Amino acid sequence: MKIFKTFILFILINNFFISAQSAQKNILDKLFDRLVKIDDSNKAEILEKKIWSVWIEHPNDIRLTEKLEFGTELMQYGDYNYALKVFDNIILTDPQWSEGWNKRATVYFLMNKFTNSLDDIDKVLSIEPRHFGALSGQARIFIKLQKYEKAIKSIEKALEFYPSFKSRELIPEIEKLIKEESV
């Protein structure tokens, strides 16, 4: 009887987690459906902030949300090594939460570890292909690595679902770099 109760409790908890993740996905889907149709940059920025607010909230573990906030603060204060450990722990705890990977990619970028950052960005995009923040970061790394065509492709990918994305302003600058390089 005790095993049966434990099994039922496991199913209930598992269903709760799946429901929370599903609810978060539904919210994101609705926000992105609106984002792709908006041509007003002010309204798009409001939707962008709403999307970020969903991404940075773990769907079912407040402790992971708090760890992400802590790691982000460490990163902002320049304690990259400690922030890296915090994000490593988040990824170990929930490897399916794209924002843990995204924050670690950001730390790697700040540490000039571009290969590691690109690897984490690939993981972010495998979980959340619409992650315009990761795509923008990817573009910036490609610019630093002088892989300009790849940088443009990253931005263009983001523009598919976020047409008024500010990173679009990088494209003319990148095209200028390409022309300068070919001279």
Score class of each variant (00 low, 15 high):
163 P>V: 02
162 Y>E: 06
125 L>Y: 06
171 I>R: 07
135 L>E: 04
59 P>T: 08
118 L>G: 06
167 S>P: 07
164 S>Y: 08
153 K>H: 07
170 L>T: 04
167 S>C: 12
62 I>V: 11
66 E>W: 11
95 P>K: 10
144 K>W: 04
163 P>D: 11
75 M>R: 12
113 K>Y: 11
112 N>V: 07
99 E>P: 03
96 Q>I: 03
147 K>S: 10
98 S>I: 02
72 T>R: 12
129 P>H: 09
160 E>N: 13
132 F>A: 14
63 R>S: 15
70 F>K: 07
137 G>V: 00
71 G>R: 00
131 H>T: 04
140 R>F: 02
119 D>R: 15
174 I>H: 01
81 N>H: 07
160 E>R: 12
117 S>W: 01
158 A>H: 09
90 I>Q: 03
96 Q>M: 12
91 I>R: 01
126 S>G: 03
98 S>A: 15
91 I>W: 06
110 L>N: 15
126 S>A: 12
57 E>D: 07
82 Y>W: 07
139 A>P: 09
135 L>A: 03
68 L>H: 07
85 K>W: 08
82 Y>L: 13
115 T>S: 10
160 E>F: 08
114 F>A: 01
104 R>Q: 12
121 I>F: 15
127 I>W: 14
167 S>N: 11
172 P>E: 03
151 A>S: 14
144 K>F: 04
165 F>R: 08
70 F>W: 07
130 R>K: 14
159 L>I: 00
101 W>H: 09
56 I>S: 13
135 L>M: 05
165 F>P: 00
58 H>Y: 15
87 F>T: 01
80 Y>K: 00
67 K>V: 00
112 N>C: 06
80 Y>S: 00
77 Y>K: 12
92 L>E: 13
133 G>D: 14
120 D>I: 01
145 L>F: 06
175 E>R: 10
174 I>C: 01
150 K>V: 03
175 E>W: 05
78 G>I: 00
137 G>P: 00
146 Q>V: 08
61 D>E: 10
57 E>V: 06
64 L>D: 09
139 A>W: 10
151 A>Q: 07
157 K>Q: 08
124 V>W: 12
170 L>V: 05
140 R>W: 04
170 L>C: 08
177 L>S: 02
66 E>D: 15
78 G>F: 13
79 D>P: 04
84 L>S: 13
104 R>V: 02
157 K>G: 00
136 S>L: 08
104 R>L: 05
105 A>I: 02
133 G>W: 15
55 W>F: 04
61 D>H: 06
160 E>V: 09
88 D>Y: 14
79 D>E: 15
109 F>W: 05
75 M>K: 13
113 K>H: 12
55 W>R: 10
137 G>Y: 02
